[in-house]
Simulated assay, not measured.
Amino acid sequence: MTEPGARDRILAAAEELFAGHGFDATPTSRIAERAGVPKGLVHYYFKRKPDLLTALVERLPEEHLDPANVVVPGDVAASLHRLVDVLDRTLDSSAMLSHLLWREADTHPAVLDVLRARFARLVEQIRAVVAAARPSGCAAADVDSAAHLLASAVSYRHSVARHAEDGQDTMHRELRFLADALAAGAGA
């Protein structure tokens, strides 16, 4: 296994320090020290400190999801559970970075833009899964509402994941509720 390059070490150090202490409270000298590189090398790769944050945003893993891999036809609840499991695995691979982004979204418009785009993609993924698994007769407006509600719940859970105690149990109840509501709407 090869050692990560200087740029990757700088990004890893920045991610860890920004997440732990905040963007504004972390000087580039500490990032360089943590990465084991001269401070000038940090500025060689990243002209300005905000460029570090932008590079971290770009490293955030995408949730590429094929609905066919999670949909259980006719079973919205099982499909949503499988979807949330995939999303949780993505969170596990980037929990520190996700926390950092939520924290910095208020003061860095580029971060907020990335989070908004991720939320829109999440809504689309949920919508596709629910649409493929839903009972016949379920209104498109209900699918859209369910997608937005679940995206909000997942986003909230991921934003506070390191502080959550019962997130999994709560999420299972929420998924069952959404599935039951969609099924009841289809029968109306």
Rank of each mutant, 00 (worst) to 15 (best):
A105G: 03
H108Q: 13
A110R: 13
V111A: 08
D113F: 00
V114N: 06
L115Y: 11
R116I: 06
R118M: 01
E124T: 07
I126P: 01
V129R: 02
A133V: 04
A133W: 10
G137D: 02
G137F: 06
G137I: 01
G137Y: 01
C138V: 11
A140Q: 14
D142C: 09
D142G: 14
V143Y: 12
A146V: 10
H148A: 02
L149Q: 07
L149K: 00
A151R: 12
S152G: 15
V154Q: 07
S155K: 04
Y156C: 09
Y156Q: 04
R157L: 13
H158P: 09
H158R: 15
R162L: 14
R162G: 06
R162E: 14
H163E: 15
H163P: 02
A164I: 10
A164F: 13
A164W: 11
E165N: 13
D166G: 00
Q168T: 13
D169Y: 09
M171A: 09
R176T: 14
F177K: 09
F177Q: 01
D180K: 14
D180L: 10
D180G: 08
A181F: 03
A183F: 03
A184D: 11
A184R: 11
G185W: 00
G185C: 03
G185Y: 02
G185E: 03
A186L: 03
A188Y: 03
A188M: 01
